[in-house]
Nucleic acid binder design. Structure first.
Length: 758
RNA sequence: GAGUCUAUAGCUCAGUUGGUUAGAGCGCUUCGUUGACAUCGAAGAGGUCAGAGGUUCGAGUCCUCUUAGACUCACCA
């Protein structure tokens, strides 16, 4: 053996594991019955974005590897199923940045071309991602790898959409949505970051009263003034109409209990198309909706000519200038408030009314809340149970449509002849962008030309649609059908990931794959807590809705890796530590160990090179202890080398170390069952280094061959206990010992977990 | 506005159901190691466990409050 451990054989060892089939569990012929007896163990990998190179967050999948390696050694049929996500908006955003660098934008391409370009872009990185996970030693079953845009997976997701529709849980509506005019799509509430903004409160004279507002520019779309009925100042005005400045349109004064008399002037301008609260008021009072900001972020519609085409901040200035000129600004106060920003590009979110696809969430949420309450899904650490339930209880209908290209399109078709009010944006034969209603285009452009160059369409909320694909409109028999250009929210697809990857068949559950029968529900979902709502909640809802059973029995939330300053690692901050650089420098085992050593459950932690180096030393210690055992045996040159311990001949040192070994086996087993990885790794470190090396091995230096069985027993048992954490070095040593001393040939990866029998 | 978490050695952090002199890594001091490991060993310095009060035979650990910080959720003008 070499003088120091040199992790140069990792790839070979990984290949040995792969070739042995250890990562690929076999499913018996009668999976449903066998399952009860076999107690299979399964984890679905939180699918990384296929376009995303590895970062420390991915390296934390080590936790899952520890779990599956441990349970595999316990003898359970064990599956760790990897995958890759197309990651809708994330990927499109990255790709658009790339386009931007090349001086292009998404508007230069029709959607088919754009889709193809992004597809190729992702394919380049997808392989890299898999390669990197192998480098980290993850014992995933690559024969069951899935990519979220695989045809069968998409097919199943579309089937789920159809089922939801049939069950009356899908509808279109034109509500206020969180719209990012830069990204060109709506977002769910979860995708909006609230940031504190220092702004102003403008007091604007509206005829007989004054309103206070943070968004003067939206006044062009006001359709009412709201006051509290208890407010004596405005009592007489309720029901009257007043003239809206600048646009000279009459709007009513309405009575609304929710208005705070103390705030501002107690009179609120109501802009139903650009404010969520005002939207609700408008629904209640049956007010008019006047949208002034269009989906491109400009004031294109329903505004006086002079304001046309302005962006909101320009519009604000123009409106304030004109109000000032007309002496209609009473005063301006400083004001700090929370404003929603796009979580992707960071720009302010524009609340806009837009037709979108929704899923009614109550029917899905209720069983999910119950499952959490009844511990059908358990949470580690348990405190996340409470926030999960609270969030589920306050959940709103889910906007599942995104106005992006990258992802499966919603399988709904519109008849252009029945719905001439559909607005189409497309590139014509000459690659010119045309943007008009179908009523204006009919006769000038063929449907074929429109389809070929199509970028997006916006169908009025009243438009009829067909969910099953056909050639002809069932009403008018026209063949001018066009598919909805909205794509699914990424989480709509990934929310079904455990079902899709295990081969659940939504259309006919009885045709689901044996994998599904055997491994569903999966055992553990280990993920970062920040996607608890995005993903874990959605998976649970879909699982229960489609199968009646939860997708995983336990949710284990792990910690976030930060840099030395405690900041989240991100590319934009430039503080990303590449795990592959670390494995190259110190070996994979050292990195893995440093990611779990002494970490409290679900608390953020710092990964520093110091720490990795310390664990590299530990890995080397394992190596050298083994090397010493070998050298000692060579020196003693015994007639027979065996692991059989003769209990009658044990010295005090022997008894002590065996006693400690029994204890560490028991505590390791117990703590692994309770997800206490930090504790286990520390205990093993102390046991191996202090108890075994510094004490027992030191004492063995003065002894004869009777010490060999104990030495070898403690060593090989330690290798087993350590294997889930540091798989490469332990396997390499184990193979070496087997070879040299002619022990029973087996791979450590599929060896039996020790029991405290010594 | 609602909720969650954190505060322990110079630094980064462990410390499950409350139980003997509070631990690790890194750093620091002294010494040792020419045959496992300079990626090593031995010994040591260093902490009134944020502050105050309470429960208890006993509190770093449970409860209340205070202070400082982090985060999540949220449609208030």
């Amino acid at each position: 053996m070499d003088k120091a451990y040199n992790p140069t054989n990792e790839d070979q060892i990984y290949k040995k594991w792969l070739d042995s089939g250890a990562f690929t569990p076999k499913v018996p012929k009668n999976p449903k019955e066998a399952k009860l007896k076999d107690n299979p163990y399964s984890i679905i990998l939180p699918l990384p974005n296929a376009n995303d190179p590895m970062h420390m967050g991915h390296a934390l999948f080590t936790i899952q590897d520890i779990l599956v390696r441990y349970h595999r050694m316990l003898g359970q049929p064990t599956l760790w199923l990897p995958g890759g996500d197309h990651a809708g908006i994330e990927t499109q955003f990255v790709f658009e940045k790339k386009l931007q660098k090349e001086g292009k934008s998404r508007f230069d391409f029709d959607r088919k071309t754009l889709y193809k370009m992004i597809w190729d872009f992702v394919e380049e990185n997808r392989k890299l991602n898999q390669f990197q996970m192998k480098k980290l030693g993850f014992s995933m079953d690559w024969t069951r790898y899935h990519y979220s845009l695989e045809e069968p997976i998409v097919k199943n997701v579309l089937a789920t959409f159809k089922k939801l529709y049939k069950d009356g849980l899908v509808y279109r509506d034109e509500k206020i949505v969180n719209y990012c005019t830069h990204c060109g799509t709506a977002f769910s509430n979860l995708e909006v970051d609230h940031k504190t903004v220092n702004s102003h409160l403008w007091y604007i004279k509206y005829g007989p009263l004054t309103v206070a507002t943070t968004r003067p520019e939206t006044m062009l779309g006001d359709t009412a003034i709201a006051v509290n009925p208890k407010d004596k100042r405005y009592k007489d005005l309720i029901g009257k109409k007043i003239l809206l400045p600048l646009v000279n349109r009459e709007i009513p004064v309405i009575s609304e209990d929710s208005i705070d008399i103390e705030f501002g002037t107690g009179a609120v301008k109501v802009t139903p198309s650009h404010s969520p609260e005002d939207y609700d008021m408008a629904k209640k009072h049956n007010l008019e909706f006047i949208r002034i900001i269009d989906f491109d972020g400009r004031a294109n519609i329903n505004v006086p000519e002079k304001y046309r085409g302005l962006f909101p901040n320009q519009l604000r200035q123009a409106v304030i200038d004109d109000l000032t000129a007309a002496n209609l600004i009473e005063k301006i106060e400083d004001y700090t408030h929370e404003v929603g920003h796009c979580y992707r590009c960071g720009r302010p979110i524009e609340p806009i009314t837009a037709p979108q696809w929704y899923v009614k969430i109550d029917a899905l949420a209720k069983p999910t809340i119950k499952a959490a309450q009844d511990n059908q899904v358990k949470f580690f650490p348990t405190r996340f149970k409470k926030s999960f339930i609270t969030w589920m209880e306050n959940i709103r209908d889910w906007n599942i449509s995104r106005q992006i290209v990258w992802g499966p399109q919603i399988p709904a078709w519109y008849c252009l002849d029945c719905n001439p009010g559909i607005k189409l944006n497309f590139l014509d034969k000459n690659k010119q962008v045309i943007s008009a209603f179908y009523s204006e285009l009919k006769g000038k452009y063929s449907v074929e030309e429109i389809k070929n160059g199509l970028q997006t369409l916006v169908a009025p909320v009243t438009a009829d649609f067909i969910i099953d694909e056909t050639d002809h409109c069932p009403k008018c028999k026209s063949a001018s059908l066009i598919q909805e250009t909205d794509t699914f929210d990424t989480w709509f697809l990934s929310g079904q990931w455990p079902l899709s990857t295990l081969g659940f068949n939504t259309e006919d559950p009885s045709k689901s794959s044996p994998d599904f029968d055997y491994f569903y529900p999966t055992t553990v979902m280990d993920t970062l807590w920040d996607i608890l709502f995005f993903w874990v909640a959605r998976m649970t809802m879909f699982g229960l809705y489609l199968t009646g059973d939860v997708p995983f029995k336990t949710v284990h939330l792990h910690s976030k890796v930060t840099d030395a300053k405690g900041q989240k690692m991100s590319k934009s901050k430039g503080n990303v530590v590449n795990p592959l650089d670390m494995t190259e420098k110190y070996g994979t085992d050292a990195l893995r160990m440093s990611l779990v050593y002494g970490i409290a459950p679900a608390s953020d932690f710092v990964v520093s090179e110091d720490k990795i180096r310390a664990q590299r030393n530990f890995v080397n210690k394992i190596w050298n202890a083994s090397r010493f055992v070998e050298m000692l045996i060579d020196r003693l040159n015994p007639s027979k080398i065996s692991l059989d311990i003769d209990k009658s001949k044990l010295t005090k040192a022997d008894k002590d170390i065996l006693d400690k070994l029994n204890k560490i086996i028991a505590s390791t087993t117990k703590n692994l069952n309770n997800y206490r990885f930090g504790q286990v790794s520390e205990d093993l470190y102390q046991f191996f280094w202090k108890d075994f090396c510094d004490v027992y091995i030191e004492s063995a230096k003065d002894r004869g061959e009777e010490t060999i069985p104990v030495l070898l027993t403690v060593l090989t048992t330690s290798l087993k206990l350590l294997h889930p954490f540091v798989p490469f070095v332990t396997e390499e040593i184990y193979q070496y010992l087997i070879e040299k001393y002619n022990f029973k040939h087996e791979l450590l990866v599929s060896s039996k977990w020790p029991t405290n029998e010594f």
